[in-house]
Structures are given as C-alpha cells and as structure tokens.
C-alpha cells in the first residue's frame, strides 16, 4: 500500500477533469472492490477522487417508459426499489444473488458494473498476471483455472467478469451514460465490456477518466425473466455459471428472448446464437438443448473448467424450461 491523496468531488465535470488529467488517479465510490485492491497492492493510485457526494442515487422514470438509475445508487437500494421489483425483477434477483448484505449496502450501481475479475492470480500482487502487469504472463492458463473463461478468452487472459448485475443489465438492454472530458456519450452495456484479446488490462471500452453517471433501462421487456446463479457455496460466492434470461411467449412459440451467461467469459456473454435458434420456435426440450449447444459450440476449456460446458448447458436449459413453463407441450396447450 502506498500513500495516496484523497479528494471529495463536488461535481461530476471537475471530477472527470481531475481524473482524466492524472493517469494515476482513480474514482472511488462504494470502495468494496478498489479498497481491497489498494490493500492488496493490485491498484496503486496516487489520487482517489471520491464521487460519493455527487447525488447520483436517484431512480427516475424516463418519458419512454424506461428507468434511469443514478450511478451511485447502492445495490441494496436498487434491489429493493419498488419499480425495479415490479418491472425489472431480473435486476433485483441478480443483485440479491451477489455479495452480502453489508457489501450491497456499500456497493454502487456503476461500481458493481466496473468491478474487476476475482482471478486469484490477478489479486495476488506477487504473481504474474497480464491484466495487472502486461507481459508478465498468465499462470491461470496452465494453473488453477476452475473459475475461468470458456468463451472469448485469449492466450493472454482467461479471466471472467464477476458481476451478476452486469449480466442482468445486458439482458435488459441497458445503456450506460458516460461523462468524459469531452462531454457525455451513451454506451450500451452490451458493448461496454471488452474481450481480453492482446490487451487484458482494459476490462471495458471506457477511457481513463470517463465516469458512468447513470444507467438507463428501456421500457420493460415483458414476458418472464429469471436470474439463475450456480455456485459452490449457497450464498456469498461468485458464479461458476449464471444465466440472465427474459422470454416472451406467444401461442406456444418464443416470440422474443434475451439470454446472457455470467461466469463464462471476460464479459457478460450475450448468447445470441441460442437466442436466434429459439426465436420463433416452440421451446421443446430438444430445441432448448440445441440452442444451448449452438451457443457453446465455440467453448474452449482449460484443465480445470471443462465442467462449465455441461453446467452452462444445463443451467440455460433449466432456466428456459422454467420460463417457458412447458408451453410447448401439446397437452398443456390443449
């Protein structure tokens, strides 16, 4: 741990200007991830700009029927918000499946989305890690990789993104409102995250100094939604595999759906192949399995995570079976 300066921001623009101007500066919000990293020596910023006072914890209706969530909204508050519970239960379910009550009381919406991988090598400052120290190597590829990626990984990094909320946000087609030194831009959450490629140091497309100020949800998708998380421990554990799913049925056929895997890749993994395979189809057991297989065709497993392929398939099928509720069974339709 090295000494750092601490400043409380009073407005977003000057906070962004301050951090953008200093490559060693970082934003601090709930601190549930960054403070750990400071203690572990994983992050060594020289300046922390605390954005907790920016009053970014409002949850407001948007004219188009959507919802705007202030970036500083605490996870507990968001999960308990009546509008979220009524119209975006997927978000509540995802949030409440993560961390602990104490952590959710502190962690913010944007902080949750921007939390970093829990790869044990990344978090051990004395171990090699391309994400932490470019060019030092990735010991997880041939080491302990039970929790690591089976989709979209690179030889340089096989880390997974740990956020439950992020998977749900991608399934809800949410958009991040991002303030940078040159003004505001909007980034769909589905496009926020990067695959590691040959630069695993960057988790997202955000530039240094850019600040998420809000997340906007479109009008509710309708149909039924479910966040299912599979983990070794019954609570307070990161996902081995999770599925955020929303399905709209019509006449026994899948009218539209959104499927996102957590725990499988460097980013929440939109299962577009599986969606395409099912959209307009009857959700028979055979069709569900085929859709899952289509998505996992490109899975590449490591020494310790081969189980994630059948586990991801089973989880997806199980969730879809529940959401489609036997709608394709002829006897149920009668």
């Amino acid at each position: 741990m090295k000494p750092f300066a601490y400043r409380r921001a009073t407005d977003a623009r000057s906070a962004v200007a301050t951090v953008a101007a200093d490559p060693d500066a970082a934003f601090l919000a709930g601190g549930t991830n960054l403070v750990d990293h400071l203690k572990l020596g994983v992050a060594c910023p020289s300046l922390l700009v605390d954005v907790s006072d920016l009053a970014a914890d409002l949850v407001e209706h948007l004219p188009d029927g959507g919802l705007r969530i202030g970036a500083g909204t605490r996870n507990s508050d968001l999960a308990a918000h009546p509008v979220v519970r009524a119209h975006y239960p997927l978000l509540s379910e995802a949030l409440l499946s993560g961390a602990s009550g104490q952590l959710r009381n502190a962690a913010t919406t944007a902080g949750n989305l921007l939390q970093r991988t829990r790869c044990g090598y990344f978090r051990d400052a004395t171990a090699p890690c391309n994400k932490r120290e470019p060019g030092s190597g990735c010991p997880a590829v041939a080491g302990h990789n039970r929790h690591h990626a089976i989709l979209g990984a690179s030889p340089d990094c096989v880390a997974t993104h740990p956020s439950d909320l992020a998977a749900a946000m991608v399934a809800l087609d949410a958009t991040a409102v991002v303030l940078g030194p040159d003004g505001e831009r909007r980034v769909p959450i589905g496009g926020l995250y990067r695959l590691p490629g040959d630069d695993p140091t960057r988790d997202t497309v955000l530039a240094h100094g850019e600040l998420i100020t809000a997340v906007e949800l479109p009008a509710p998708f309708g149909g039924r939604a479910r966040y299912r998380k599979v983990r070794d421990r019954a609570s307070f554990a990161f996902a081995l595999v999770s599925v955020a799913a929303a399905v709209r049925m019509h006449d026994g056929v899948v009218e539209d759906l959104r499927l996102v895997f957590g725990g499988l890749a460097h980013r929440p993994w939109r299962a577009a192949h599986a969606e395409d395979a099912l959209r307009g189809s009857a959700p028979t057991e055979v069709a569900l399995r085929a859709a899952a297989d289509a998505e996992l065709l490109d899975a590449r497993t490591l020494s310790g995570n081969g189980f994630k392929v059948p586990l991801a398939r089973n989880t997806l099928v199980s969730v879809l079976r529940e959401l489609t509720d036997g709608a394709a069974e002829p006897e149920d339709d009668a």
């Binding site: 978090r123 171990a127 302990h144 019954a234 307070f236 554990a237």
Partner: peptide, 24 residues
C-alpha cells in the same frame, strides 16, 4: 489449491478459500 508451477497456494483469502456460510 496449490499452483505447483509457482509453488504457492492460490486464492489466499476468504473469498477464494470457501468456508460454509449460514445458507450452507
């Protein structure tokens, strides 16, 4: 878990070393 290449235990924290919680 030991990483035998690095010769060390990995996940030296209470997130990586899993103890039962109340829900278990």
């Amino acid at each position: 878990t030991t990483d035998h290449r690095l010769g060390r235990f990995v996940d030296k924290n209470l997130a990586g070393y899993r103890l039962p919680v109340n829900a278990d």
